[in-house]
Design a protein around this nucleic acid. Structure first.
Lengths: 243, 243
DNA sequence: AGTCTTGACTTGTTTAAACAAGTGTGGTAT
DNA sequence: ATACCACACTTGTTTAAACAAGTCAAGACT
């Protein structure tokens, strides 16, 4: 059923790491061994291993092998109820969560809005505000701007569910690249009204611009997070030498 | 001088995008065209393009081509003096900045410290606290833990300069993977004493774990950022299908 | 006019092979 | 014993080729 061989191998190896079969600091089998196991070419295997490496599961060492550097449940100290509001991957469905619609309207990308969202001036937009709860705790206030011609037929009712489910499953829209900027900003009266602030006067803000498979910027979202429950994960590789 | 062909091609293409030769939303030349230009194989070219794609410069579309989705100076609104304290790449040297040593000592990773840093219990560490200024504004309070056996010979004086310059240039240490978690935390009295808080009672915290080329976790750093000057960039690709 | 097919073009996946370069071991010569 | 070297093994880079799959336009057909 799965399409790509390298993706299958990637998932199989990742599973072995997460299950502990390949333990932290241990070496995984050599390329030649794995090539025989998976009956694939060296290139295909290396592609799978590179994906693991890019996500911080392993680290390869020329002449020596590939070492596992992933370990289960780090940073349990900060996790409150397993939030993981935004991981380094694109948004995925989570836990006992609910969404409340706050606002739904149509706008035009004005001159003031255009540089913020990066959308062309005068473009027609859907503007949506939603409050996201986890375990009944109001944690995230989302401000979404969707390009109307791309997100055609989006209604208040549909937006009350998962917007992405509609865009991907119904419209067949493919999401490819998301660019995000994380900042910390002072609370607004609206933040205070909706979010559980725990005495903080700042929110964590994730501003993300998303491109579809046509290379068109079709969404700009500002997610304002309750600070005490915000956590963002990231892995960086030094793959290339600096300029 | 540069080692890798794919890295050279990557840099050349990136330069063309940043200079505007390949403009936003434009298609870059096809693989065949670029293969002739760079006298390389298709694989090598594709590797360079994939690096560009992973960093949000381009987006490829099967059957159609590769489109530029990078545009100059986004989010100038938030940038105050071009901070870019942490980009998605590993730390690079920046602007008119200075570092002040606050604290330098040796510690042992106690039972309380070990789970925080992820270092083995009982390991000998250097503990360093430093204040980083940009344009004389105190913006970042760094708490560094270095594994002593790896960062041998680190002194208070060396740490006053760039620690990474010492580790990489003097010790020949190679940094490969950094895992980061971003959170927002209430200020401590120490934060207030050192950082310009602009009336906020929270700081942005970047907790990073760094592995050297042996796959050893040799550094744990908690950087506490003045909230109004914090900005973190990230690009995510939907390369593989979800499980 | 409108629809369909063909073919040239694009990027995506997989295999194969060769060489380069780093690591470690074991044997040999000193 | 020590130093050195050769060899087997590892990952890293580059080329080549074939096929799959998506796109688009020109031309043929209705």
């Amino acid at each position: 059923m799965p399409k790509n061989k390298y993706n299958e191998i990637y998932l199989a190896l990742r599973q072995r790491i997460e299950s502990g079969e390949y333990a932290f600091q241990q070496m995984i089998p050599s390329e030649n061994t794995l090539i025989q196991q998976f009956s694939c070419s060296r290139n295909t295997l290396r592609r799978a291993v590179q994906a693991l490496s890019a996500e911080g599961y392993v680290q390869s060492m020329q002449g020596r092998g590939v070492r596992v550097i992933w370990q289960p449940q780090r940073s349990s100290q900060f996790l409150l109820g397993g939030v993981e509001s935004c991981s380094q991957s694109l948004p995925k469905k989570a836990n006992p969560q609910s969404t409340e619609m706050v606002f739904f309207t149509k706008r035009v990308a004005a001159s003031a809005l255009s540089p913020l969202t990066g959308m062309p001036e005068g473009a027609e937009l859907y503007y949506i505000e939603r409050l996201r709860r986890l375990n009944d705790v109001p944690l995230i206030l989302d401000h979404n701007y969707f390009l109307k011609p791309v997100a055609v037929g989006l209604t208040r009712e549909l937006a009350g569910q998962s917007i992405y489910a509609y865009l991907e499953d119904q419209l067949g829209l493919q999401i490819k690249t998301t660019r995000r900027v994380i900042t910390v900003e002072p609370v607004t009266p609206e933040d205070t009204a909706y979010l559980q602030m725990d005495g903080c006067n700042c929110v964590a803000v994730v501003s993300s611009s998303t491109y579809n498979s046509d290379g068109i910027l079709f969404e700009y979202t500002q997610s304002r997070h309750s600070p005490r429950h915000f956590e963002f994960h990231d892995v960086a590789q030094r793959s290339r030498l600096p300029v």
